[in-house]
Design a binder for these strands. Structure first.
Length: 223
DNA sequence: GACCAGGCACATC
DNA sequence: GATGTGCATGGT
């Protein structure tokens, strides 16, 4: 990865200032919600290109059906999975993707999320990325929030916020942005979790595709 | 009723 | 390598 950014005092200061401004507005977000590592991993797949409110409905359906467990989920029929996941959209794809993830857990990590603990982060990341339906953002959601690894999650809100405030162009490659945060701020799992949570919250309030910059906690960055 | 949402894989050029 | 398209529900 020769595009890996160097550590820079200037960039570190810019990122920490962003964090401070958002934290002062929102306080601790406690992101990601979920009662178990498995629930977080499932949520990471269900939220692909989908509003979180729709994901919540699907997760509630899975919970009611007793399917927030890898073995139980593998025992369910595709129709049961699709019915439960329907509110989150793309439900046929997502039912298949969640099932593939469970098969991977079963075959590679003893069928439980805790089984991943003995595998190095870079190995885990490569394994997740090799699964059909798990791309960089989903893999990093799982690594950071379900596995506690110090990996920074880059999403659409991250790109919008960075580009609108002149920190990095929107089209900067995923790995370059991820390394930019990790090199300058990390490794620090708790900071990465909270930083991404704050980006999501700020993004939802002020940085959707139609910008509503009035009142944005990051407005001072533009001065 | 149009537009949008925290992606990803695949086809085509 | 860049660009386009399908996937699908629910909120604004």
């Amino acid at each position: 990865m020769n595009t890996k950014p160097r550590k820079s005092k200037r960039m570190e200061a810019a990122l920490r200032r962003m964090f401070g401004l958002m934290a002062a507005r929102y306080g601790p977000t406690g992101w990601w919600p979920g009662d178990s590592a498995f629930e977080i991993a499932v949520g990471a797949i269900l939220t692909q290109n989908t509003a979180w409110t729709n994901v919540e409905k699907a997760i509630a359906n899975l919970d009611r059906a007793g399917l927030l467990d890898p073995a139980a989920l593998l025992a369910a029929t595709p129709e049961e999975l699709e019915a439960a996941m329907r509110p989150s959209g793309y439900y046929r794809q997502k039912a298949q993707r969640v099932r593939l993830f469970c098969e991977y857990l079963r075959d590679r990590h003893n069928g439980v999320m805790e089984g991943m603990a003995v595998t190095p982060t870079e190995t885990l990341r490569a394994e997740l990325l090799a699964l059909n339906g798990i791309g960089p953002e989903t893999a990093d959601d799982i690594l950071l929030y379900a596995c506690g690894r110090p990996v920074f999650v880059v999403d659409a809100y991250t790109r919008r916020i960075l580009s609108r405030h002149g920190v990095a162009p929107f089209e900067t490659p995923y790995e370059t942005l991820r390394a930019m945060f990790e090199v300058n701020l990390g490794p620090d799992t708790e900071l990465f979790r909270e930083f991404h949570g704050l980006i999501v919250w700020t993004g939802k309030d002020f940085c959707r595709s139609r910008p509503q910059c009035r009142g944005c906690p990051l407005a001072p960055l533009l001065k």
